[in-house]
Amino acid sequence: MIDNALRPEARSLRINDEAPGFSARSTAGEVSLADYRGRWVLFFSHPADFTPVCTSEIIAFARAKERFAAFDCDLLGVSVDGLYSHLAWLRDVERTFGIQVEFPLIEDPSMAIAQAYGMLDSASPSSATVRAAYVIDPKGVIRAIVWYPTNIGRSVDELLRLVEALQVSQSEGASTPEGWRSGGVLLELPATTMKEAAATGEVTGAWYYRERIT
């Protein structure tokens, strides 16, 4: 059930939008997005159960669950497959690969959640969603959106880096440069006045590229 699903004529979701709320059955029981308020959430979709790329991803997410938890970030998966398909798939993953998937995997057979998040529009010729991931902050605001095609697997390490970078940028009031990793150099926010621009960076000497000195 969608709390505030987008209408077909509404614009697509964007960064800084409120994440559409929902309640649905999952492999961990009934879940609601509102249950996660106060924590970060990586909400991700996969096109279908029992498929090779999705299997590789679900295993990688399961292995990284505690690494996300270290950033107060919960994992929440969804696909248009039904609950019994999810249960059968995850049981087979455990039996075949020895991996327990301990985060909820939501069913969305009506495709209401997929459509609310723009993973699947009303004119789509099939029910296969893109590989979408949404980083949702503790206030329920979408802070990042990442989409992959169905045939390309995502990097769980990159999604972890993204979550940490968002948190550090927020807490430090700074930006992160290309390829930033934990403990790396931060960048001061861009100058917006001539006075700020005159205070050149101590490292580069460029007013538009100021590394934070720690």
Rank of each mutant, 00 (worst) to 15 (best):
L120V: 14
S127A: 14
V135T: 04
K139G: 06
S126F: 06
I136S: 05
K139S: 11
I142M: 05
A123S: 13
A128Q: 03
R143N: 00
A144D: 09
S124L: 02
V135P: 00
V135S: 00
D137S: 04
P138S: 00
I136K: 01
L120W: 15
W147D: 08
Y117A: 11
W147V: 14
S122H: 07
K139I: 10
Y117T: 12
M119F: 14
A133D: 13
M119V: 09
T129K: 03
R131G: 00
L120H: 12
V135F: 02
V141K: 13
I145K: 01
D121S: 15
Y117D: 14
A133S: 15
T129L: 04
T129E: 09
A132E: 08
A133R: 04
S126K: 12
G140E: 07
W147A: 03
I145C: 01
M119K: 07
R131F: 09
D137K: 04
V135I: 04
Y134I: 10
A128R: 12
A128L: 15
A144V: 05
T129S: 06
G118W: 13
Y134D: 09
S124R: 07
A128C: 06
D137W: 05
R143L: 03
T129H: 08
A144N: 04
T129R: 11
A132L: 02
T129I: 06
I142Q: 07
V130E: 11
I145V: 03
M119E: 14
A133F: 04
G118K: 13
T129D: 10
Y134L: 00
A144S: 13
I142V: 12
P138K: 11
P138T: 05
L120Q: 14
R143Q: 03
Y117E: 14
S127N: 13
